[in-house]
Design a protein around this nucleic acid. Structure first.
Lengths: 240, 240
DNA sequence: CTAGGTGCGTGATACGGATCACAACCTGGT
DNA sequence: ACCAGGTTGTGATCCGTATCACGCACCTAG
């Protein structure tokens, strides 16, 4: 089989092993069959741009493999990373449903496999498959939820330290290490990108990490970070 | 007819004159009939709290009359106002769909009429009425969209002045005065509340207004504000 | 007509973090 | 082995704005 960018393409959703844990993908057979017939399985290299904020919506991108960076950016080039999407997420969904422009920019961080569906096809699909439509509502609720989290973090934090601590704790949860005494996590992003996630400058992130290390709260080994004092980190995260 | 809090209750959605311009309310007859049978028409005084962030979702609140303040607040009491909902909006929708806690707090700013629907009833209704389900997806897309705007404003602005200018311009658009040379708008909120909308302090808002007045960019007459120099305001709003 | 509440105006001060400017890295390519 | 380009570490400086602390105008209730 052709395998561009070193990816094993998942040709059919029916044989996809990951389908069961994915909110949108786990559709009843009828709907899935219809979905199969309108989707285009595509692959992108690292650094590819799926869509840019402001563009008219072409359709949805269901992420099957790889990570995608979702960001918004201001006229003067400042960037804010909203989140890094994981497989199973549907990108460009709200724009496709509402018909308004994409509200953010999606850029691959790894080689990615993506199922693309054209807007008209997708809307028709939704009208014909009520169960899929409900899944879409669930997905959108999820997105709204995480947007609210982002707003809370951006708007209600007093310091950059607080936001960084929150981010590290979130990551440790996502890694399934949160219940361990000393959770570890891989730092897959640069300081610059972390800065863009919490809306601060690169230098500040570097300084904050230096401070956390000095205070023995975290410990870095290459690109893995060990949280040595979870309690202290939590107290920074919810500082008054 | 009983009319609590000085409201004229709209008893039936069928006779509601405003239905046509409302994204969610304008349902086909069948769905609307079903909706009528599960909704409770209720009224609230000014200052009432419909739901609080963190609560398990009881159901949705369709706002028929009055304004509702949507906010999130931190443990130490700091508040961020996300938006002021207008009639036609469905509140608590994403939490009700996803089953997660309400992500924000809804408090009436005026006496309000609200149609409440219990979660189980609403979910059943969605399953049985695909067209309504699609409307829900549209509503959620809208909410997501405005959340993204909020994130952009909070995360990518460099100064409080920029955020205030953006807010004033938005308000002038919503008032339908945006194309006039000197748009007017009613300041229905206190400086404190405006501060909470743009994530700054009350004093800063006061100072910013003073500055705008001194520079002849706006002019206040009681609680109405005239924008005398729209261009200048726009340049502040998109300052580098 | 007062008293107390609520929103507004304004000064002085302090601090966090942006920004600029380099130096010290590390990593992959030739 | 070496150089280039991206990443990280650190100091000095400066600006925006939070915060505290007032006084003042207005409104409503007693």
């Amino acid at each position: 089989m052709l395998s561009p960018y070193g990816l094993d393409i998942i040709e059919s959703c029916f044989t996809c092993k990951l389908r069961a844990d994915r909110l949108f993908c786990d559709l009843p057979t009828g709907a899935l069959q219809a979905f199969e017939s309108i989707k285009y399985a595509t692959a992108y290299p690292k650094g590819a741009v799926l869509f840019v904020e402001g563009q008219a919506p072409r359709g949805i991108y269901v992420l099957c493999k790889g990570r995608v960076k979702l960001s918004i950016c201001s006229t003067d080039g400042k960037t804010l990373i909203l989140k890094v999407a994981e497989p199973g997420e549907v990108l460009g969904l709200s724009a496709t449903v509402s018909g308004k422009a994409y509200e953010l920019t999606a850029e691959t961080l790894d080689p990615c496999q993506v199922n693309f569906v054209k807007r008209e096809d997708f809307l028709r699909f939704l009208r014909e498959h009520a169960d899929a439509c409900f899944r879409v509502a669930e997905q959108l609720s999820d997105k709204y939820n995480s947007a609210c989290h982002e707003i809370r973090s951006l708007g209600l934090s007093h310091s950059a330290a607080e936001k960084l601590a929150k981010l590290l704790l979130e990551w440790s949860v996502k890694n399934g290490e949160s219940n361990k005494v000393e959770p570890r996590l891989k730092l897959a992003l640069t300081h610059e990108e972390i800065a863009q996630m919490i809306g601060t400058s690169r230098e500040t992130v570097t300084r904050l990490f230096a401070d956390l290390k000095k205070r023995q709260i975290v410990l870095a080994k290459g690109s893995t970070l060990m949280i040595r004092n979870k309690a202290a980190l939590k107290s920074i995260a919810s500082a008054s």
